[in-house]
């Protein structure tokens, strides 16, 4: 990828003495021709302006020395020069306009060229990235990310939501099994009202101990018999 950009840079930068870089194009020559014309018109304009000043001075001089017809003739000459100068001025404008648009067009062509180079470079880069390939890579990446998540969850001891439910169900089952094996849990407190207290007697076996009084009377009866 770097080569796409690097190549352009090599051709652009440096190599000042390279003749390819310092090329004079047909466009340059055309501009030079036009600018030379502009310079020549400019020089002619200067010359005419000087001529005009000279004729103006001459006319004034003739008026002062009362040579009216000669002065008129000079003024006529001046008028011709003025109209020529106007023509030159409009030509100068035209030439300058053409020079400007030529230079502008060249700039535009340069921009167009850079745009095309840029678009080509972009196309090159895109061509290196097939869409199916990208999708495959993205899938691979997704899988890898998921695997990574699983790994890190396992390492951190965090369980998956489904797994947690499973475990909870397993725990409930265990609790139920345990409850089935065991006697029922007494509900009332020992010694409370209406609750039998058992004591052991060798003859009678286990007898409920009703009360301390009954117990003692029982014992007395047995001793008597």
């Amino acid at each position: 990828m770097g080569g796409v950009f690097g190549k352009k840079k090599d051709g652009d930068g440096g190599n000042k003495s390279n003749h390819n870089d310092m090329e004079i194009t047909a466009h340059d020559r055309a501009v030079l021709d036009l600018k030379n014309q502009r310079d020549k018109l400019g020089r002619q304009k200067k010359k005419m302006a000087a001529n005009m000043d000279r004729l103006q001075g001459m006319a004034m001089e003739l008026v002062r020395s009362k040579q009216k017809t000669k002065a008129l003739l000079v003024l006529k000459k001046k008028k011709v020069i003025v109209s020529n100068m106007e023509k030159i001025e409009s030509m100068l404008d035209n030439v300058q306009e053409l020079v400007d648009s030529l230079e502008f067009a060249a700039r535009q062509a340069e921009v167009f060229d850079s745009l095309r180079t840029g678009a080509d470079a972009l196309k090159d880069i895109n061509a290196q990235m097939d869409i199916d390939e990208v999708e495959r890579i993205m899938d691979d990446t997704q899988e890898a990310i998921e695997y990574q998540n699983e790994l890190s969850n396992a390492l951190a001891g965090i369980l998956q939501p489904g797994e947690e439910e499973d475990l909870e169900a397993e725990l409930d089952a265990l609790i139920l099994d345990e409850a089935a094996d065991m006697p029922s849990v007494p509900v009332a407190e020992p010694g409370a009202d209406g609750i039998e207290e058992y004591s052991y007697d060798s003859d009678v076996g286990v007898v409920p101990a009703r009360s301390s009084a009954a117990r003692s009377s029982g014992r007395v009866a047995m001793e008597a018999s």
């Binding site: 000042k16 310092m22 004079i24 340059d28 020559r29 030079l32 600018k35 030379n36």
Partner: peptide, 23 residues
């Protein structure tokens, strides 16, 4: 000589022009 300009002429050799290049 520094590579910053090139003198050339178009139609007539006496009307020389110069093109400037980036330094």
């Amino acid at each position: 000589s520094q590579g910053k300009a090139k003198v050339f002429s178009a139609s007539s050799p006496e009307d020389a022009g110069v093109k400037f290049f980036p330094a």
